[in-house]
Amino acid sequence: MGERGTSHAVTVEVNGEKVSRIVAARQLLVHFLRDTLGLTGTHIGCDTGNCGACSVIVNGKLVKSCMILAPQVDGATIETVEGLADGDSLSPLQESFHEHHALQCGYCTPGMLMSATYLLRQNPDPTDEEIRRGIRGNICRCTGYVNIVKAIRAASREQASGGRPVPAAAGEEV
């Protein structure tokens, strides 16, 4: 039987780096990332799982890290916004967001980029409607989504025309 308790040992691979910590059972994954690991790129915009600012990819699946407890991800591979760029080289979506002014305050941007990354992995050539469905769970208050849709579309076209692809998922889907 698994250990029962108010704190748990958790080992995860975050952006390619293996980390182990003792976490409180009540700690949400987003607080684990931000407060325990100091990965503050993942943001908090609501407290009901509606805004998507905390979106990360766990075992290849896009999730909201405020809707998962830290002990639940033991053994998982986690991708956050901090892992999107390859060193100083921005990912094609990051580039595209910049070029198309798809961010203003930048607060939703990390979650939005994770959703867009997941979307293009699942569907490399989405229609505008599919893009909008893909980011339905990410609220942006600044852009009216206009340039975000444009940036994702442009990144997908860039990829289709032989540009750099969206990085492949880390970890297996489970």
Binding site: G2, R26, Q72
Partner: peptide
Amino acid sequence: MLLEQVEYVRPQSLDEALEIL
């Protein structure tokens, strides 16, 4: 986003889960 103190357990089998429940 701050939960009350709570315990967590991840049973390895359905029987274990039913036992705890």
